[in-house]
Design a protein around this nucleic acid. Sequence first.
DNA 1: TATATTTGTACCTTAAAGGGTATAAATATG
DNA 2: CATATTTATACCCTTTAAGGTACAAATATA
Lengths: 68, 68
Amino acid sequence: MNISDFIKEKRKQLNLTQPELAERAGVGLRFIRELEQGKQSVRLDKVNQVLALFGSEIGVIKKDSPTF
Amino acid sequence: MNISDFIKEKRKQLNLTQPELAERAGVGLRFIRELEQGKQSVRLDKVNQVLALFGSEIGVIKKDSPTF
DNA sequence: TATATTTGTACCTTAAAGGGTATAAATATG
DNA sequence: CATATTTATACCCTTTAAGGTACAAATATA
């Protein structure tokens, strides 16, 4: 599970739209969209802002370890 | 263990200087420095470029989970 | 299937990340 | 303690992430 899919999935679980998630996370709508579409060159702090809503965050893992 | 410390530690283990790590990872020297100093607003893909040298990568974890 | 909602794409602007280089500070080594 | 090596800071420049808005495409709903 990659970050993009994780976020999309968690958002769905909470029945939030992209604008709602952006609002709550305090990031721009476009950021959420690009993030969910797998953009790699995103800022770490912004990603963590979003993940914080789900009780998770970015961390270092071994390659091929299951995330979360 | 946060990302900054993890990278600094791994680099030391391999007896690399910051310029050497930057060279190998294909990122700028300044990026390595800011990264090791805990800068949050770094690009995810660049971080992964560095972590790849250590056989690790960025992933989503639960808050307060031990990383790596 | 028609309509409403949600998501994705495109354009523009602004702020700042990333890079190079030079130099100062800190650390290691003899 | 003196010197060499490594790391941190400061400067400038270029690139681009992020945000806003508008519109198109896709998906859900009636």
